[in-house]
Amino acid sequence: MTISRETAINVTLALILLAMPFLALQLGKPFYVTLATRMAILGLAAVGLNLALGLGGLVSFGHAAFFGVGGYAAGILASHAFAGQPLNLGLFALPGTNQMLVVWSVAVLAGGLLAAAIGVISLRTSGVYFIMITLAFAQMTYYFAISWPAYGGEDGLSITIRNVVPGINTLIPINYFLVCYALLLTALLIFALIRGSRFGAALQASRQNKLRVASIGIAPFRIGLVAFIISGMITALSGALYADLNRFVSPSMLSWHMSGELIIIVVLGGVGRLWGPVAGAMLFVVFEFVLGGLTERWQFFLGLALLAVVLFARGGLVGFLAGRMRHG
């Protein structure tokens, strides 16, 4: 088979996103580097959601919980590093750190644990129940963060100095963009590997017909749970990156609007498509930025545009450009 249309689109998207910050610097518009970084990070978060939603058919309306937990992992560790006090976890104490590699590991671990806890209960349900129970769990973490005074409550937590990666000066925007971009590519690779694996096949099969999967001896619950945990881990990682981009974490990262926005990003780009979430994130950020600059009523037009996509442009941007999915 020659290169499919979707592959061509994917390569183009990858190049556009990569070229954008460099072009911005050439033109003397450094702000667009930040914008491109935001696209890469939200894209990464949506890749995580796409794993659960696109492959597993698990419509999680609570992914903000993982996003926020990743963000808080970065914020809390950085604040302890800054204050020079270890983080007391009861059984053992964890020293604060400003090393991104450590922060990422903790964020991924925390996201995975939370996803396991939420998944074990939520995956007993399906359909609308699943949507609503994931939403409820995210709300629970949201209220917890708001009323937990140790880390700023609703005021959030500032990261005074962006965390560091050995050998790279992350304070320079283009470097930080490249770090995020590399992680995005890694996550996409993981997504592609999972999709092509036996596990991925079982996951997609369980989306289409749980009974049939169960009848050939595969437990859909366990497959769904593993997918949900990996999904939560990826989204938590993006949350840590997002916190470092903004130098700030707050409960609004956990709000149900955030969960909604992540779903919007996945759907805008194309559910289940490899690069769909990235396309969606690029579109969403551009939309927010351009419309936000034009009119304070931008949410009205965002709503209209979203409605148009759902009603008339199923398959999202990638679907629109690449045509129907080969298997679906």
């Binding site: 962006r162 000066n169 992350t170 304070l171 925007p173």
Partner: peptide, 23 residues
Amino acid sequence: SFSQALDSEDGVLNHRPHGDPIT
């Protein structure tokens, strides 16, 4: 920005939290 990028332990940059003084 690239020459600075190589010099990651730059003292000037370190106490400036949000980096990239030039940008």
